[in-house]
Computed example of a mutant assay.
Amino acid sequence: MIDQFRGCILGLAIGDALGMPYEGSDSVDLNELAFRDSPFGDLKAGEYTDDTEQTIMLAESIIETIYFSPENFAEKLKRADFRRRYGPTSRRAISRLQMGASWKESGVESDTCGAAMRVAPIGLVYHFNYSLVENYCSISSMITHKGRGAIAGAVAVGVAVAMLINEDFNLEELLGFVSKHDSFLAEKIEYAYEIRDKDERAAAKEIGNSIMSYDVVPLAFYCFFSSKNYVEGVKKAIKCGGDTDTAAAITGAFFGTRDGYSSIPEALRKVENHDYLLQLADKLYETYLKIASIVRK
């Protein structure tokens, strides 16, 4: 199972860094996956965006507190490096936190994807209880994103990661969790499954590839449903264009969780802070073991 924890965290970060140079493109012609400099000059090849930075903050918070603490996570968010392309919702919410707002007051009524992209550590550590994952994902979202679609997107990604680590992925059950928060997002994820045989450009047109949770979350699920392995899935996420870093990050987290770190080609492992991310994954696994030992009692 530790290989799955590593695969999830590194799979997310690598996907993020691979998708970073293409963010905002209508569509992408891509022959092979490779790290490249940002055309905007803001990030270098192999560097990640706020998707991974916020995932790291959430992971560190869980390791410190064992059970998810919104107060602790909110404190972590205050150290955000806005150079890493933080979206408008996250920037606004984090600015509120930095000015003294509590986590209950900081969230913005927005349905962008900032909560969904960072939530994988919750699915990893608390995978033994899907309802707990749902609850923690919902609370973690509200610190920055209070929109129903944003919360539903976080729940979708978190519960999917939990199911994948359990080798128990059940689309109908997943949609049940998601539809409690937003039925439209649940319908789009179901539709992503229905069109899994279509090519990525057609799928991107039908699903959408914007920064909205309603688009990028179902698009990442499409890339997962329609692909056989990490490389194929992440490549599709990038070729879809739009919010390429987030689509590739979520897709990478899904495949990394399902197939483990060992399934990610060695040539793609030279991501920024690789060794620290590996240590973080191991500490998340140790945190899960601590909780599991208590639960068994």
Rank of each mutant, 00 (worst) to 15 (best):
A249K: 10
R85M: 07
E167V: 08
A17L: 07
T287M: 02
D215V: 05
S179R: 15
P88W: 10
A253F: 03
I264K: 01
Y222W: 09
G241E: 05
V159Q: 00
D282H: 13
S213V: 08
Y191M: 13
D3L: 01
Y86E: 04
H181C: 03
L185S: 04
A156R: 01
R96Y: 11
K180V: 05
L10V: 03
A74L: 09
E232I: 10
K76I: 01
E109A: 10
I291Q: 08
T257M: 04
S226G: 11
K283Y: 10
A204W: 07
N31A: 12
F224E: 01
G41C: 09
G100S: 09
K205H: 14
K44L: 11
Y126F: 15
S141A: 15
I9Y: 00
Y261H: 08
N170E: 15
K146I: 10
I238S: 02
L77S: 04
T65L: 07
G114C: 01
M212N: 00
F128T: 12
T65A: 06
H274F: 13
I238V: 11
G256A: 01
V217P: 03
D182M: 06
H274T: 01
L164G: 02
T112Y: 07
Q54H: 15
I211M: 02
E286N: 10
E286R: 12
L280P: 08
V159I: 12
E272Y: 08
T287S: 02
E232M: 14
P265E: 13
Q4I: 01
E105Y: 05
D16M: 12
I165V: 15
R92S: 14
D42G: 10
D182K: 09
A152Q: 08
K76Y: 15
E32W: 10
A101Q: 07
A59M: 05
E53D: 14
R201G: 04
G15H: 10
L124Q: 07
V217I: 13
L58W: 12
A93L: 14
V157M: 06
I264Q: 03
S110V: 05
G149Q: 08
C113E: 03
S138K: 14
E64C: 07
I63L: 08
Q98F: 04
L289G: 03
P88M: 12
A186N: 08
S213Y: 06
L132A: 01
K78A: 02
G176T: 08
E109C: 08
F225G: 03
